[in-house]
Nucleic acid binder design. Structure first.
Length: 447
RNA sequence: CGGGGUAUAGCGCAGCCCGGUAGCGCGGAAGUUUUGGGUACUUCAGGUCGCAGGUUCGAAUCCUGCUGCCCCGACCA
């Protein structure tokens, strides 16, 4: 992609409404634009990140056996009357009336709808277990949206819903998602720690929040230091091996970890002092097992082997991709801008043509661009007629993991400068070495 | 929803107290200059001063009402 033909509205100054670093950088780097309180448009660079996050989530959901669907944003109120949540939900639910005076709502979540779908088609125990997920925009009319897309009213959400014949099978489904989440966040370059959680308005009795540590996190968290060294489960894990999954979950829940709401001073005190971590965290995922909370009132049942009716056991599993984009920035930035991990970077490499219009630098830049693209990397070529300083500042701000600087000085010696955004290390390499070096590094990071 | 702010050019702000018809920096356009870490200078374009009403010869400025947005708290993926 040529920057001269792209849409990258970067801001030199920080809009005053942005308090936390991810919000500031998302506005400055041209990722998002606020359209109303807690409602954002995603600009090309931001959408690029969001799509990469979604792709990782989708891959890991499918790996764990979940199947993708897409449910609407607008739902009929009657569905929510069945579960009793229409009156229970309160003002956070955006209620709307259509031209026929039918009561509708902009969905804050989809348990009722997925239960309606499953009960309509699934009649036999042979059709289970089933886990359906979707990635869709949701709306919660927060009293006070803030921190940009970290706590917005409209937000993108991956939600998976599991259906099982028994609580025990439901537990296995829960564990599948638990393990999938460990892999998902690790692949985004994040260390997410599962913490015991309140199940809130969704209901249920088994629940974990996945929290990443960040100074600007919204909640106070306490955990054992060893979590920061845990390795995520491998890609070839057998999701049908219930015992193996239970062992992994056991390992990841064996050490103390809790948010302030669930904090137990006594249990935390039992952790050796040198291993205690008290920090702030951002919730990026939340999983629940809630049994028959919705299937019972909504009559989601199947016939068992003996012909008797079985009420389905359910769980739901959320990840907020839009919030994750901000969380990843909170976890990776410096004074100059964003530092994207390779796996979610909107472009893997940025090429700066320091003398746009010069035939020699232009030719080499075009060749480099082509070679990176041939290797499957996403490339942004800054071919604008700008001063070198402006190009360096732009590349640092938007945080692409690798920068290749092509200028007349280096070219005279047959070299280009390769800079790694994280850490800032720079070296002079031949164009060929630059390509192979970066391609190898990106492939290694992608795993 | 309680408390506190704020609204003037794309962004950041001054002007308001003491009413006289709008300004600065950045950004944008044109040009000169510069050429490896947001260069310097010149010129230009761009604003129903959030909206509605009122006071006044005259309102960005004073008064009333409304709305948007932000911050603190409570709440929350």
């Amino acid at each position: 992609m040529r920057l001269s033909r792209y849409f990258l509205p970067i801001l030199r100054e920080t809009p005053k409404e942005a308090e936390i670093v991810s919000h500031r950088l998302m506005l400055r780097a041209g990722l998002i634009r606020q359209e109303a309180a807690g409602i954002y448009a995603w600009l090309p660079l931001g959408l690029g990140v969001l799509n990469k996050i979604n792709a990782i989530i989708r891959e890991e959901q499918i790996r764990a056996g979940a199947i993708e669907v897409l449910m609407p944003t607008i739902q009929p109120a009657d569905l929510w009357r069945e579960s009793g949540r229409y009156d229970a939900y309160g003002k956070e639910m955006l209620r709307i009336v259509d031209r026929h005076d039918r009561e509708m709502l902009y969905g804050p979540t989809n348990e009722e709808m997925i239960t309606e779908i499953v009960r309509a088609y699934v009649r036999s125990y042979k059709d289970l277990p089933l886990n359906l997920f979707h990635i869709q925009w949701k709306f919660r009319d927060e009293v006070r949206p803030r921190f940009g897309v970290m706590r917005s009213r409209e937000f993108l959400m991956k939600d998976a819903y599991s259906f099982d014949l028994s609580a025990e099978a439901g537990r296995h489904s829960y564990n599948k998602m638990f393990v999938a989440y460990l892999r998902t966040f690790a692949r985004m370059g994040l260390t997410a720690i599962p913490m015991a959680a309140e199940s809130g308005p969704i209901g249920g009795n088994l629940s974990h929040e996945f929290i990443i540590l960040a100074e600007t996190g919204e909640s106070e968290v306490f955990c054992h230091k060893d979590f920061l060294r845990f390795e995520p489960p491998p890609a070839n894990i057998d999701f049908d091996d219930a015992a193996a999954l239970e062992a992994i979950v056991g390992e990841w829940t064996g050490l103390y970890a809790a948010t302030s709401e669930m904090h137990d001073e006594k249990a935390y005190g039992a952790v050796p002092e040198a291993s205690r971590v008290a920090a702030r965290g951002i919730e990026v995922g939340h999983i629940f097992y809630f049994g028959t909370k919705y299937s019972e009132p909504m009559r989601a049942v199947v016939s068992g082997p003996d012909g008797k009716e079985i009420v389905l056991s359910m769980g739901s599993y959320g990840i907020g991709p839009s919030r994750l984009a901000a969380a990843i920035i909170e976890a990776g930035h410096d004074e100059n801008g964003i530092i994207w991990p390779e796996q979610v970077a909107p472009f893997h490499v940025g090429i700066a043509d320091l003398k746009a219009g010069d035939p020699a630098t232009g030719k080499l830049c075009a060749e480099l661009e082509q070679q990176f693209e041939n290797a499957g990397l996403d490339v942004l070529l800054d071919d604008r007629d700008e001063r070198p300083g402006a190009k360096f500042a732009t590349l640092d701000l938007i945080g692409l993991p690798w920068q290749v600087v092509v200028g007349p000085k280096g070219l005279a010696e047959g070299k280009v400068e390769v800079k790694q955004r994280r850490g800032g290390a720079r070296e002079q390499l031949s164009p060929q070495d630059a390509v192979s070096h970066i391609v190898a590094a990106v492939k290694a990071a992608r795993g």
